[in-house]
Nucleic acid binder design. Sequence first.
DNA 1: GTAATTTGACCCTA
DNA 2: TAGGGTCAAATTAC
Length: 306
Amino acid sequence: MSTMSETLVTQRERLIRELVKGKEFTAQLQNLLNKPLKNNGSVSAEELAAKILRSFTETLSVLSSDETFQIDGGDSGSSVCSREIEKKPEKVKDRRGCYKRRRTSDLRNKVSPTMDDGYAWRKYGQKKILNSEYPRCYYRCTHKYEGCKAARQVETVKEDPILYKITYFDHHTCTDRMRAPHIVDLDPVESLNLVSFDSKIPFNQDHPSYSMINIPSGKEEPKRETQSTDMSDVKSSLDDSNSWHKIVPMEKTSSGYAPVWGLKTRPCDHDQEVASGFYSCTSNSLHELDMEGIDQFGDIESFHFD
DNA sequence: GTAATTTGACCCTA
DNA sequence: TAGGGTCAAATTAC
């Protein structure tokens, strides 16, 4: 018995060692990728990639060689257990052991004025949270039963009830995006920053935290207060000097509110690069939006900037 | 009829 | 043991 626990400890140590190595190699690779022209002389990107691969292969081999660490083929969060199939005669099913709590390591947080990120979500629960006046809503990907493990939790931000705090778990393995904007294919946390078709605030409401085009979409929430179905309305809304702000969500910063992002290939003088290839512009006078980029369904295919 | 949402119960974990 | 995550029957919407 003690031999078994000793083996387990050894296995754990190996796992931790390998994962730490993998993390270090990844950090080095990231460094290299940030400075592709300035190789620091120590290791090449190829070598690092090979090391990372070896490290994770080793980790996986440890995991798969021991029953204790068998990777659960099912859902990391909830799962339908065999007990359910056994159809107990009791009115209340015994669900003990039916699900595991979702792991918290692979989660991403986002505060957004909109819940919509282009994916199709199915709500499966809602909970009142202690010391919070707003409930937390639980969603999983509509394609869960096709194997997609993505899930998210949505909460109204206490300090700013027009905003949602969205926590994403796992990544979509399904490819279906209900009505995704065709700008770039990013993680939901990123992509929901780009364009949204669903908001808590009616178009033109003068709230400091954000403003954006309220483009009609195929499936709307019934509670929508206003929506424009005429693209000329959208275009006219772009004609004023704040047009850029109309399509760019504003984010709380230490100095007030600022545009969060913009997808541009060519920055202007006012721009700050907020991520590689992404610029946020704080000027009011600027870039004309090419409306040809918006198709008849309201999907934005591309933006053209002057 | 089917799909989505609501909601109370169940159960895991800190 | 309380709080929170998930299940699943009931209800609602389409």
